[in-house]
Simulated scan of single mutants.
Amino acid sequence: MVFGDVEVLRVVEWQGAFAPARALVPDSGAELWKGNEGWLAPDHWETDGDLAVGAVQSWVLRSGGRTVLVDTGLGNGRERPGSPQFHHWQGDFLGGLAWAGVRPQDVDVVVNTHVHGDHVGGNTVGTEGGWEPAFPNAQYLIPAADDFHFGPDNAYGGGSQRPDDRLIYEDSIAPVHRAGQSVLWDGTHRIDEHLTLESAPGHTPGSAVLRLASGGDRAVFVGDLLHSPVQILAPSCNSCFCLDAEQAVTSRRRILERAAEERELVVPAHFGGAGAVEVRREGGEFTLGRWAAGGGVPAS
């Protein structure tokens, strides 16, 4: 996809049925899914097993002569006992980037929208000396609030319910700090004339969105603000992974309101199918507009 002077490529690391629909989005009623079956299935809902379908994917942005990588996926060979589906995962994320014409040394900026294992796992690669940054020339932009929350100063997540938080921080975040390649930010952070990071807390304390504005084109990469399109129709419904439910709803409504007003294409981290969609307001409610054209570059 092209937005003004910015080219956007999608690299899909994994895609498939993920979890029972109402386990992933607990407050979404069966009628919400059934009433929208015509477009939810099969890209977002596997009706036979009542399973939410999603993807783990990254986005490559070529902007201002630099290559920006938004989220780095699962990473290989990780200890993730709390996530059996991805425990000791072996994929080909770097191969997917190569297919998209991106070598590790070409990446100038890595954006971690938040510090969860499926967004930071590819930050590093395993070597004989331990974990090292996968992108040797990149500046890694990490939300300061997440770095504190998931780091050792807050005992790797404090009261969060994720058992893998310490492992994720130690194999995917701490090595980037040790290499001197990390930048912690809060509030807003401008990457270049087209790209700006903005805090949208709730899913995690430091969850962020990346706004793209070039010419008359607009997009917003929303990370885990949305796990399923049903959350656009019912923005009060959080995913089971949201740490602060009230704050997550507030951030979701704010970002969706602006997307509808400014005609930003909404690009979530985990939508299958086209992966991105327009959001509109009709009668005080959010509805879905057109889906983005084009597929992803598979990395598996």
Results as ranks from 00 to 15, higher is better:
residue 113 T to N: 03
residue 142 I to P: 02
residue 147 D to T: 10
residue 211 R to P: 02
residue 217 D to S: 13
residue 172 S to A: 15
residue 191 I to S: 06
residue 243 L to A: 11
residue 132 E to S: 13
residue 207 S to L: 13
residue 126 G to S: 15
residue 149 H to F: 15
residue 108 D to I: 03
residue 171 D to R: 12
residue 252 R to N: 09
residue 199 S to G: 04
residue 112 N to S: 05
residue 221 F to E: 03
residue 134 A to V: 14
residue 201 P to H: 00
residue 193 E to C: 01
residue 142 I to A: 09
residue 223 G to V: 12
residue 156 Y to A: 04
residue 112 N to I: 00
residue 199 S to I: 02
residue 119 H to F: 08
residue 178 R to A: 14
residue 175 P to D: 10
residue 203 H to C: 04
residue 203 H to F: 15
residue 146 D to P: 01
residue 127 T to H: 08
residue 229 P to E: 10
residue 225 L to P: 06
residue 169 Y to E: 10
residue 236 S to F: 07
residue 181 Q to S: 05
residue 171 D to I: 07
residue 120 V to K: 09
residue 125 V to L: 08
residue 128 E to I: 11
residue 162 R to I: 11
residue 171 D to E: 14
residue 151 G to L: 12
residue 146 D to L: 04
residue 202 G to Q: 03
residue 169 Y to F: 15
residue 199 S to W: 06
residue 113 T to V: 02
residue 148 F to D: 13
residue 109 V to C: 07
residue 126 G to F: 15
residue 175 P to F: 04
residue 246 E to D: 14
residue 140 Y to S: 01
residue 210 L to N: 10
residue 250 T to N: 12
residue 192 D to Y: 00
residue 112 N to G: 00
residue 194 H to E: 10
residue 142 I to N: 05
residue 172 S to H: 10
residue 210 L to R: 06
residue 194 H to F: 11
residue 181 Q to F: 05
residue 120 V to A: 06
residue 141 L to Y: 07
residue 255 I to L: 13
residue 120 V to T: 09
residue 159 G to D: 14
residue 251 S to K: 04
residue 246 E to V: 14
residue 160 S to K: 07
residue 235 P to L: 04
residue 218 R to P: 07
residue 127 T to V: 06
residue 187 G to Y: 10
residue 191 I to Q: 01
residue 152 P to L: 13
residue 213 A to R: 15
residue 253 R to T: 15
residue 174 A to N: 12
